[in-house]
Design a binder for these strands. Structure first.
Lengths: 198, 198
DNA sequence: CAGCTGACAGATTTCAATATCTGTCAGCTG
DNA sequence: CAGCTGACAGATATTGAAATCTGTCAGCTG
């Protein structure tokens, strides 16, 4: 049979399937190899360790969210104020959806968190970077005043302030009734804090 | 020998010692009884379960912080703005100190968190209550405007926004250099958001 | 000879037997 | 007889042996 050649991409797809099926605690490299019909030695030809494989899958999964959010960042038709709120709501919605619809991959993400994986750091850096762009736009438009004149620190502060709505640690609270209202109150407070005083 | 009678207070003190020595994972009710020179059945006469004992010890430990903070709340010689910042810094400092100086009792506190103990809820309710008083004072003095006119929700939003600086989950980050600057930026943003616009 | 296999060493996990702990209570004791 | 003890049942934790997994690599194969 003309079995396709083994590529990193095929391995990632198979690993995602295996993780979805067994979860990060039970999924093994042997399972992934079995799903692909190869020996596990072949998988190690493409990924040096199991951790690297796990990280590559999670990175892909996280990048899907970042790509979605970048559209809000780039939306020139809206004010920075609107985009800031939209972006935060979209991030919250995306994370909550991931936690609910993809619990096993979400659990994998939590494993990386505990491992202090660079993938998570990069994800956070990327998200804060997006916030920096929105805040900078607001400053340029004369709508926002950054804290201590430091746009980077201000974006970081906004990200930290909303941590309850994007850190997986709090995933259990995301389905609590009233959580949206709590987020709205917090966002209103933050936007107010950013606004330039006339 | 005129051994003192066994009181709840003596049991609590002994339990605190035992917890400090062995930590929540290893400390047993038998250890506590041994420290007191009684049988473990006697301990159960005063506390219905081991969890109740653990909670009572932790409650006492948490209440020491709340008492300290209440002095800042009640300090009429300072503006609400100042007290808000002072209170948050004091809470952060107290938590960080507890994590560093009392790691075993801090670990016990984390156990209660995982157990969804009512003691933690009460602690949080009390803290938010203190914030409500500060925010209300600010509103009364004409310095603050509450979000959507709701002082309670506003205080809660401030508490949520600073969660990184008081939730034990983040204890590992509390000794990171630059953390104080990050907190200052966030507090500046929040205070600015609270301020009434002229 | 590039890519894959499968046997292997060491690390990690599983599992079941054993030990310890929690919570109860009948009865002892001062 | 109020307060304490210690034996007990069931729940939980520990332990060590066996099983499985990770990561390597010499050699096979198309």
């Amino acid at each position: 049979m003309a079995t396709e050649t083994l590529t990193a991409e095929r391995i990632l797809a198979a690993t995602e399937d295996v993780l979805r099926l067994y979860g990060p605690a039970k999924a093994t490299v042997v399972d992934v190899a079995r799903a692909l019909g190869v020996s596990h030695g072949s998988v190690y030809r493409h990924f040096r360790t199991k951790a690297a494989l796990r990280e590559a899958v999670t990175k892909r999964w996280l990048d899907r969210t970042t790509a979605e959010l970048s559209r809000i960042v780039a939306d020139g038709s809206r004010s920075a104020e609107d985009r800031l709120a939209l972006w935060n709501v979209a991030l919250f919605t995306a994370k909550r959806k991931k936690a609910g619809a993809d619990p096993q991959l979400f659990a994998t993400y939590e494993v990386l968190l505990r491992e202090n994986s660079g993938v998570v750091d990069e994800h956070i850096t990327e998200l804060v970077g997006q916030l920096v762009r929105i805040v900078q736009d607001g400053v340029d438009a004369g709508d926002f005043t950054p804290v201590e004149g430091d746009v980077e620190a201000t974006a970081r502060a906004v990200f930290d302030a909303t941590i309850r709505f994007h850190d997986p640690v709090y995933a259990a609270e995301w389905s609590k009734p009233g959580i949206e209202a709590e987020m709205d109150a917090l966002l209103a407070l933050l936007v107010n804090g950013l606004k330039r005083r006339p």
